[in-house]
Computed example of a mutant assay.
Amino acid sequence: MSQNLVLNPSFEEYKRCPSIIGNFNHNVTDWNTPNFGSTDYFNACSKDVGETNFFGEQSSRSGNGFAGMYVLAPENYREYVQGQLSRPLIIGDTYTMTFYISLAEKCSHAIRDLGVLFLKEPFKRESDEYINLNKILNEISDSYFVLINSQSHYIEKTGWEKITFEYTAKGFESNFIIGNFDKNSKISKIKMHSTKDPDASYYFIDDVSIEPLHSETISYSESQTIEKDQVLENDKVYTLKNVLYDFDKHELLESSKAELNQLYKYLDANKRLQIEIYGHTDDVGTQKRNDELSLLRAKEVALYLISKGLRPERITATGYGNKFPVADNDSEEGRALNRRVEFKLIFK
């Protein structure tokens, strides 16, 4: 498993090949726009919105897809990209965030004031009053803003410039927004060339990653059940093979509890271990229902362990819906493998 926690990090997966600009919110999988800005999606699959665009020419840094957004424009107009993580960040752990940008060749200015807003829930305001998100920085609970410190302006036009920083997680981060959060009057900018158009700064963005600073490859256990006296490895993802549910239900079956009892005994004997529980579904049903069902199933396991005596602060539960299948969904056997609950033990 890759250590990059950002879903669709290079904008390769899309709902439809772009045919017009400004349609990022409807085209790209696992990404959206948090305001009414019309962020752009480019992909080599398109003749109209491919590598030649309204600001010149640009090819992706990797793959075929990339995004573009205004970070300086008249009337404090801003565009942003909002991404999501495969799991929340772990409180106290340090992560490296990296992304790459390239200045559009025909825009008038370059800036250096980019930031990242980390969030527990995705942000969406139903008013164009919040077209510039600097107004919300002190309004949202469970959020944290990072202003990226740069000693120079981002002036690279032909290649891609790397932006990276380290971040210590607060423990709620599941989503993030990249862009410029300042007013025009406060932005540090330099003029690149004269143009008859209003002052503007526009950047392409690609290859976004958030990775644990000390990352290890995660492997899956081949164990079918948790056996008595079995030694479980830290940072290895295990599948609870005997934790089963009725169709479209999240209540534990009685036959599932023996394996969970063994898991509880192991955690009770190893009190410095914390556990992350991951719920998954097959692709039958709507995405919304699958996301809900996978979380309910993970929480049901967590609640059972708590009922046995495990302290709640040692447990986190996350639902991934049908995002991470381990088999194809074309057969009942494959769908059965995808309907699963996994866990990982973390030494604290």
Rank of each mutant, 00 (worst) to 15 (best):
S215E: 05
I136Y: 04
F247L: 09
E276L: 07
L253Q: 15
L263M: 07
T39Y: 10
E121D: 13
S255Y: 00
M1G: 14
V146F: 07
N8V: 05
S141C: 04
E105G: 14
L310M: 12
G309A: 06
L244P: 00
K323T: 12
E211H: 03
E79T: 11
T318M: 08
C107D: 13
D246P: 00
H214E: 08
R16F: 13
E313V: 08
K183I: 13
G285S: 09
Y266D: 05
Y70A: 12
T316Q: 12
E211N: 11
K183S: 15
N242I: 00
L305N: 04
A258D: 14
F165M: 10
F176C: 01
V116R: 08
K271P: 02
D142Q: 10
K170T: 06
C45S: 07
K191T: 14
N138A: 06
R272I: 04
Y264D: 02
V116H: 11
K135C: 05
E276Y: 06
R61G: 00
A327L: 04
G279F: 08
R16D: 10
T225L: 12
D199I: 01
L305D: 05
G115P: 06
G179R: 02
N138P: 00
Y266R: 08
A110F: 01
L147Y: 10
E75Y: 14
V71M: 12
P325G: 13
D113S: 13
I155L: 10
Y95F: 09
S223N: 12
E105P: 01
I205T: 05
E313Q: 11
V81C: 12
R78M: 14
M97K: 01
S256G: 15
F343W: 05
L305I: 06
D248M: 05
K191M: 15
I148C: 06
S59F: 14
A73I: 00
D128I: 13
Q58H: 11
D40P: 03
R272L: 05
E156G: 01
I177H: 01
V71A: 05
R16P: 00
Y203M: 01
R289Q: 11
I190F: 02
R297M: 04
L119Y: 06
I111K: 01
N138W: 04
V237H: 03
Y264R: 03
N322C: 11
H280S: 15
V237D: 05
L253A: 11
D282G: 02
P88N: 02
A258V: 13
P88S: 03
G159D: 09
P34E: 08
R78T: 13
T96P: 00
K186E: 12
S62M: 09
E254G: 00
